[in-house]
Amino acid sequence: MIALITSVLAITLRAGTSLIYATVGEIYTERSGILNLGLEGMMLLGAVTSFATAYYTGSTWRGLLAALAVGGLLAALHAFISVTMRANQVVSGLSITLFGSGLASFLGQRLGPESNNYYLVGMSGPRFSPLVIPGLSQLPILGALFEQDILTYFLYILLPLSWFYLYKTRNGLDLRAVGENPQTADAMGINVVKTRYLYTILGGMLVGLGGAHLSLAYTPGWTENITGGRGWIVIALVIFAMWNPSRAALGAILFGGINAVQFRLQAAGTTVPAEFLNMLPYLMTIFVLIVMTWWEALSKRIGAPAALGKSYMREEK
């Protein structure tokens, strides 16, 4: 039984890693008051470029760099449209998703080798394999934490660091101030525009990494729609985490867990149609959203940045 729990937990973490990266990224973005709904497109583009880069250079690390760059660039575009041009953030995010997923599909059919008719699908390239840490990985249950790939290990640093940065440093305070009340932050001498650009781009880079984890570690290689809606689930996970990076892992593990259990059930030959199992994460997210909203109505606050999704214009004080 312990062995079973350990193995389910290990799969859960593996499935949840990309979600955690993207969730932490989006938390930074939303904390600055910018809502980015372009995650699905950014993750897809991160996945295809990182795989293609790793495939041609033979280096997974260069693949990661490509994902960071692509995620950052798309986020910068979103920041430009929503911060500088003050356009509607919902529509801007959606067009990032449409553009990103269209471009990812295009690149997936153009960047491949000539022998494969320029398709990337079906090619295998370098990947991040699990690094089993001797000794620690033998622990019951906790051992699951120590048979992961390097990107998952990096999360063990990123999560506490992000929490510390957000709540215990001056920069974190400034960031939260900008998301809560840009007018006051501006009066305090914080550069609202710069802050929003900075954290939207930083967030986008982490989202790109989330995409890279899919194509370089979790399901190595490129397939159309490799994210399978993860970018959208992340938007819900941010709410679930109440904009706190230390809680980001909980939600991602819960959702990764549904995935893991589903594999187990299918392997065990369940009679429940696969489609219904696949619906679970989406229905769960809706359920969580309802509960969270209801809870917010009761206690008034769950931590949503007050200025989220609103553009700021100094002249309109």
Binding site: F99, S101, F106, R110
Partner: peptide, 18 residues
């Protein structure tokens, strides 16, 4: 790739929004 059309569709909105 037929997704050329979708890429163009996606790109239409950016200048429009800006």
């Amino acid at each position: 790739p037929a997704s050329v059309g979708i890429v163009l569709q996606g790109m239409l909105l950016f200048p429009m929004l800006a």
